[in-house]
Amino acid sequence: MNEPSDPNEPAGLDLPVEGGTLRVLRFGRGPRTALAAHGITGSGMSFRAMARRLPDEWSLFAPDLRGRGGSAATPGPYGLDRHARDLCRLARDLGGGRPVALTGHSMGAYVALLAAVRGPGLFDRLLLVDGGLPLPVPPGADPDAVLDATLGPALARLGRTYATDTDYVDFFRAHPALGPHWNADIEAYVRYDVTGPRGARRSKVREDAVRHDGRDLLTSDALFASRLTELRVPALLLHAPLGLLGQEPPMLPPSVVERLTGGPDGLPAELIEGSNHYTILLGTAAETVAERFVTLGG
């Protein structure tokens, strides 16, 4: 384990999963265990802001999923069910026989939902952060075209190289959902993602992993709707009013949120005012996310 000199930075671990290892970032040193899954082009560093706001008794373990970050070389096949199996393996190994708390952001929320249903005895709560609800796709739509249209700059960067790390950071500073809210957590998240030789710096994220997982996500709406009804742990959805470009529409369509949340049988949900798809986790809203996560388990 690589111990950080800065208390705000995580320790890095390489933990076994089927066919290889995952790089897992550990935030905190407390005895209570949390597990967190990031978004489709993200990394475990997505949870830096949230983890810093957890009470001292918590340790948050945030893996880089296959094809991302320090797990970029971990072989596929990819797919949300594969990532969910990885989360269950980590929960068994990290929990020491006790259930762990589980959260996921964006695509990671879908992965966490599948893991919570697959291994209900492994987890004691599930916090979904701007993800986890079925995403309606027009009949006959090409999933790759939908990915290109919705992910925009997040996907475009994967095929580019950058002369310096500063150029890579500047690319993110120009992102309409991030630039106006720039802070140390966003910068740490961006700098963690860059790799490659001098003069040809690039993202650690594998585009083939993103496209594989994205197709899976966009063609599994019935599966996610079913899994929501099968949850047996306390669960909560936190969702943002603004989307991936920092403006309306939000990532989760309001009609879907209204249909699947609230009421005696619906998933409890809370709108986090003033946040977008990224700042709900990387901005000041991270304090609310941490609070809801801690109190969700009772």
Rank of each mutant, 00 (worst) to 15 (best):
A49F: 06
R32A: 14
H277A: 13
G95R: 03
R259T: 06
D148G: 12
L178H: 03
A184W: 04
A84L: 05
D93K: 07
A84K: 00
G152Q: 07
G108W: 03
P138L: 11
T166E: 15
L133Y: 04
N183I: 03
R202K: 13
R157W: 00
L127D: 02
T164V: 11
L15K: 10
G274N: 15
M1W: 03
T195E: 08
A49Y: 02
T279I: 04
G42C: 00
D213E: 10
G274D: 11
E9M: 06
F172C: 11
L245Y: 01
L22I: 08
Y162H: 10
T21D: 08
L238F: 01
S59G: 14
E258S: 15
K204T: 14
T150S: 15
G274F: 01
P77S: 07
L25I: 05
R32G: 08
S5P: 04
R160T: 05
D170H: 09
T279L: 04
P234N: 10
A177Y: 07
G152P: 10
G159D: 15
M251C: 01
G262W: 02
A235L: 04
R32V: 12
G243I: 08
L260R: 06
N183M: 09
R26F: 03
T164C: 10
T103A: 10
G140A: 06
H38M: 07
Y110F: 12
E273G: 14
P197Y: 07
A49S: 14
E270H: 06
A163L: 13
T261H: 00
D64T: 10
G76H: 11
Y168Q: 14
P138C: 13
H175D: 14
R211M: 09
G67N: 03
Y78P: 02
R232D: 13
G199N: 11
R26D: 04
V117S: 14
L271D: 04
G28I: 04
Y192P: 00
G44S: 14
P234K: 02
L228A: 09
P31C: 06
V289A: 07
Y278A: 12
I40R: 01
F27K: 08
T288P: 12
R202Y: 00
T74L: 00
E57L: 14
D265W: 08
S43P: 05
L238P: 03
D165L: 03
L282N: 09
Y78E: 13
A36F: 01
D213F: 05
E18R: 15
F293H: 11
A91L: 03
A91M: 07
D6N: 15
G266R: 00
A72G: 06
F171K: 07
S71W: 01
L281C: 14
G97R: 11
R173M: 08
T284M: 04
R23A: 06
L126S: 01
D81S: 12
L113Q: 05
A184K: 12
L102A: 02
A84E: 00
R52P: 03
